[in-house]
Structures are given as C-alpha cells and as structure tokens.
Design a protein around this nucleic acid. Structure first.
Lengths: 201, 201
DNA sequence: CCTACCGATCGGTAGG
DNA sequence: CCTACCGATCGGTAGG
C-alpha cells in the first residue's frame, strides 16, 4: 500500500551495487550478486537498468555531483580569503567522503571500468575539480597568505589525503567525521600558511 | 645462446602482469591477457606459475618488501631526531612509489583480490608499516619538535598523499621524482614542526 | 611451451 | 519480476 516515489527501486539497486562495487570491485561483482542483495533474480534487474555499466555510471555521477555541490560554491565565493576558503573546501570534501563513503569510494576507484566516453567525461570533471583547489592555493600565494609551493602537487596531496579517508573511516571509530574534517583542514593550513605578519615590520 | 638467470621468465610474467593489473585491475585481467603480453598461449603460463593469484601475490610482496627495505631502517635509526627521521621516511616512501610505480599501484589497489589468508597477512604488515609513521610522529610530539596532532590521522594523511603519487606521477611530467619526494617532506614537516624555540625564553 | 578441452560463470535477451 | 536460455569468456588441466 506504500506509494513508492518513482525510481525508488532504482535507488535501492544503486545503493546495493555501490556497497558491492566498493567491497569486491566492479569487475568482480556480477549482476546476479546485485540482484541477490535485493532478493530478486539476476535477469529481473534489467527491468530497471539497461546495463551493469549504467549502474556504475549512476553511482559515479551521483558522487561527483555531491563533491561539486559541496565544494563548488565555496571555491566560487568572493567573501572570504584564501585560507578560510581552502579550510572550508577541505571540510566540504571530507564531509562528502565520510557521509557518502560508499559512493565516494566507488567513484574514486571504479571509474576506470566505464566506457571510454564516460571515462573521458569523468577525467574532465575531475581535472576541473582539482583546479578549484589549485586555484585557491595560487590565490593564497598571490595574497601572501600562503608561502610558495607547487600548487598542483599540493592540491593532489590534499585531495589524496582526503580521499584516503574513504579507505579507513569507520562510523564507530575514535574520531567523528567533523573531527576528521577539521584536523585535515588544520594540518594543511598549518603547512601552507605564513605566520601572521608582525605589526611593526 | 643467452643464459637466463633462473626465474627470469617468472620476472617477465610478473612485470607484464603488474602493468596489466594496474591498467585494468586484477579481476578484469585474464590469464590469456598476461600470456599475450609475452607472446605465448594462455595455458603456457602455468608452466611458470601455479595460479593467477600467485602472480598477484608475488607482485604484492615484492612491493611490500621495497617499502620496508627503504623505510624500515630509517624508522629504526637512533642517530637522528624525529623531524629528520620523518623527512627521510617520507622521501623513502615516495621514492619507492615513483621507482616501482606499477608494483606500488597494484599493491595498494589490488591486494583485496588475494585469498583471505594472504589478505590478513598484508593487513598485518600494513598496520605495522603505518605504525612506523605513527611512532615517529608520537616521538616528535614527546620531544616537543612537533605540535600536538592525532598521530594516526596524520600518519594516514601522509601515507595517502604519498600513495596518491602512484596515481598521477608521470616520468615525463614537470617534476622529478626527487622534487616530488622533497616537496611532500617539506609540506608535512611544515605542518608538524613547531617553530624553533627562542634562545632567550 | 603447445593444442584440445573442461565446468563454471559471465552479461544480457526472449517471452511471458 | 520470473524461467529458460544464449554465446562468450573465465581459470585451469591433460597430455604431450
């Protein structure tokens, strides 16, 4: 008697697939595995999805969308300086990794199993996203808030550290998602920020 | 007429497999793919290896061994303080990632396809290795060289950043392997180190 | 190192 | 959402 919102079943499929792709990897997960998680037969899945790759694609764009929604506005914001902006971007990215852990892990590790076209699309989005981080680092160097670093290497180091959270974060671990986000922000801001200029110099 | 050292063929198999596992992933690489890279037939591979998983295992322990050889002695060393030690550990780890890029990438991403026993073994080694980094960070906090951080989170951040190098490093890129290693060391030492104490305080 | 071959499983379709 | 089924491919073995 419950009225399901359209696509509710599709969502369940994607969630089950996300968990399986993360645990076993895309290539090692069969369509029947996904179906079994939903207590239906393998071929029944094709009433809802066109192909196994389509399911992966949905998960990947879902995750990519969350990162962009969270970090994009901060990066575009004009009302805060580079250090605060980078701090908020780090916190935002970390928050997506911890709150959408499965999708994020699949996005990060399984996108190579997409078709060539879709892979190219992901590569473009990814580069644009990394450019947000490079940009704020460059900005901080221009304003003198950050000391001189290679902004590409530094952006990659930050993002690799944040993405690594997807590998080791446990909801029942000793640190909350907020603490993890804050401590990464502290760590990298400490690494980048120049000491506040002395008043008398 | 060339006399091949024993195991030379085995090495070639592991090298070819390492490249393929890295590109396509273990599960998506067939035994026939590996054989083809060596211009032999699929079943001929079994004259040299017992199973596909055995090849993965060889690559994984090869990579794990390199990390331990490079970083272990530094971590155990008694002749330098925590900051210099951490700097050398970061440089050592980064050097392995860049010099054994394929093996390192396979080690980092494909080890979950090992049997349960071997996976447990890798997990143990990995934890012991991470403990080397946690240890030197703890040491630096005790001596007052580092300010207070969560050593586990910080160790994971450092290792995730360094392991990420395997994803983006290109031999023909703008930065040499040494520059990448040094700049990661600079970045994280900057993040951790307290300013040198004033003489008059 | 080869050919011939094995049972199992894969993603996906037909036709309800 | 089901059963029945398809061709392709998988890791691996037999027997040279």
């Amino acid at each position: 008697m419950t009225v399901e919102t359209p696509g509710a079943r599709r969502q369940q499929i994607e969630d089950a697939a996300s968990a399986l792709f993360r645990e076993r990897g895309y290539a090692a997960t069969s369509v029947r595995d996904i179906a079994q998680a939903l207590n239906i037969q393998g071929p029944s899945l094709y009433a809802h999805v066109a192909s196994k790759e389509d399911v992966l694609w949905s998960i990947v764009i879902r995750a990519a969308g969350r990162f962009n929604e969270e970090v994009g506005p901060v990066a575009a914001g004009r009302d805060s300086a580079a250090p605060q902006k980078l701090r908020d971007m780090i916190r935002g990215h970390a928050a997506v990794v911890t709150s959408s852990q499965k999708d994020a892990a699949v996005f990060l590790h399984e996108w190579r199993f997409l078709s060539a076209d879709r892979r190219a699309d992901v590569a473009r989005r990814r580069d644009a996203y990394e450019a947000l981080f490079r940009g704020v680092i460059d900005e901080g160097m221009r304003t003198g808030d950050f000391h001189t670093v290679d902004s590409r290497l530094t952006a990659m180091a930050i993002l690799s550290a944040l993405n690594g959270i997807a590998t080791w974060y446990r909801t029942d671990g000793p640190l909350t998602a907020d603490q993890i986000a804050d401590q990464h922000a502290d760590l990298f801001l400490q690494a980048l920020q120049n000491p506040a200029p002395e008043m008398h110099s």
